[in-house]
């Protein structure tokens, strides 16, 4: 008997237990501006930053990598430096989640997975109307692609519980509503 059959035999029959329904999602109650205000406060508490497109001028003089969507938006060429050598990664994200200052970013054509991970600075462009209040609301818009939720800069507290940013991922996250 293979392991699969052995395990399923050991597990026996499924129970009949039903489950409690999850609480219903609340109706949208806040304007985009109000959501962005919450997002900004939460992000800054985590050590991230909110910026605008002017900030990018200086930043893009450093070795950088751009995904296709951001490149189109900025009128630049996509790609750029080798993703391992880039100091800056610019990506356009799917959604921003206000309650936790979380960015939802899926993979796809022209969207390198490492662009938001290997550089020391991750610049996330978020279309202004692509913001929702809660994570539950965001999950209704998940695609079938591999997706990452990013909440603030990379961090660790492994050494004496002291917070250190940027241990493996970007220590600096700049979110630009566009």
């Amino acid at each position: 008997m293979g392991d699969r059959e052995a395990i399923l035999t050991n597990l026996g029959k499924a129970g009949k237990k039903s489950r409690l329904p999850l609480p219903p999602a609340p109706m949208p109650a806040l304007t985009y501006d109000a959501l962005w205000e919450i997002f900004a406060t939460k992000l800054e508490a985590l050590g991230g930053r909110i910026g605008n497109l002017q900030d990018l001028e200086v930043i893009l003089s450093r070795p950088h990598v751009l995904d296709v969507e951001s490149a189109t938006r900025l009128g630049r060429k996509s790609g750029g430096a080798d993703v391992w050598a880039a100091e800056v990664g610019v990506t356009t994200v799917d959604l921003a989640i206000a309650e936790t200052a979380t960015l939802m970013l899926s993979t796809g054509p022209g969207r390198p997975r490492l662009a938001s991970l290997t550089p020391t600075l991750h610049v996330a462009l978020v279309p202004k109307e692509r913001i929702v209040a809660t994570m539950s609301e965001a999950f209704t818009q998940l695609t079938d692609r591999t997706t990452v939720l990013i909440t603030g800069p990379s961090r660790t507290a492994d050494i004496e519980g002291i917070l250190v940013r940027g241990v493996h991922g970007p220590g600096d996250v700049l979110v630009i509503p566009v």
Partner: peptide, 9 residues
């Protein structure tokens, strides 16, 4: 934390 930094799905 309110949310862990990375949720990889």
């Amino acid at each position: 934390q309110q949310m862990t930094t990375y949720i990889h799905m």
